[in-house]
Design a protein around this nucleic acid. Sequence first.
DNA 1: ATCCTTTATCGTAAATATACGATAAAGTAA
DNA 2: TTACTTTATCGTATATTTACGATAAAGGAT
Lengths: 112, 112
Amino acid sequence: MAQNKKHEFAADEVVLADIAKALSHPARIAILKEIAKHDTCICGEIVEVLPLAQSTVSQHLKELLGAGVLSGSIDGTKSCYCINWKVFGKFEKTFAEFFSHAKSFETKRNCC
Amino acid sequence: MAQNKKHEFAADEVVLADIAKALSHPARIAILKEIAKHDTCICGEIVEVLPLAQSTVSQHLKELLGAGVLSGSIDGTKSCYCINWKVFGKFEKTFAEFFSHAKSFETKRNCC
DNA sequence: ATCCTTTATCGTAAATATACGATAAAGTAA
DNA sequence: TTACTTTATCGTATATTTACGATAAAGGAT
């Protein structure tokens, strides 16, 4: 794009869009589901369950870390990740508020 | 990317990721909020409330149409859009299920 | 010490997304 | 008819994302 106009939008719109972007790739959904399913630090096993190269998985993990929804720690040569439930809950709340606020305007006019 | 591996993931992960992608730009959030706020077909007024060129807004509208969350109709020279509340509700439900299913595994282990 | 394992990062290629101006298409107004 | 309005699409430039292989960095095993 010529330039990024992202920051000419309202802050809450940018926040929601950024959260949505973090969830906008099936690999990142799969990663979150896999880690949540165990609810322990997962150290390494993630690459095996995804149809992607190790470096690509590492990139997706980095994005989820950057969004704050994963926490990481290091255990020897291994890197461990787990869900940051506080942020995860914030994601949920942000979406829920967006949807319920929008729906509060619904009037069943059946316009188009 | 060399190739897109999107379809090597589970169908429900792709569905959620696609919904998230539709919501992953603040312009599209702003469009949905603006149309919802009126809950009538909006014919034309959308361009004025966004800091983007008309052709760019048209692209974002097309994406939301493609995701199914907007319905469109034509009224003379004007194009009108309104929220497809059925699909909007499906989006909400898809997110809500993802979050609540993941949270059902939360055990407060405080691992990392 | 050397070798192996594990994971992040670098370099790179290709796909996709974002944005704009120009133009086309189609209705409305005169 | 001609002129104007409205919106989609085309062409294009640039930014970002996705993906991989190669390599680096750092700990563990021998």
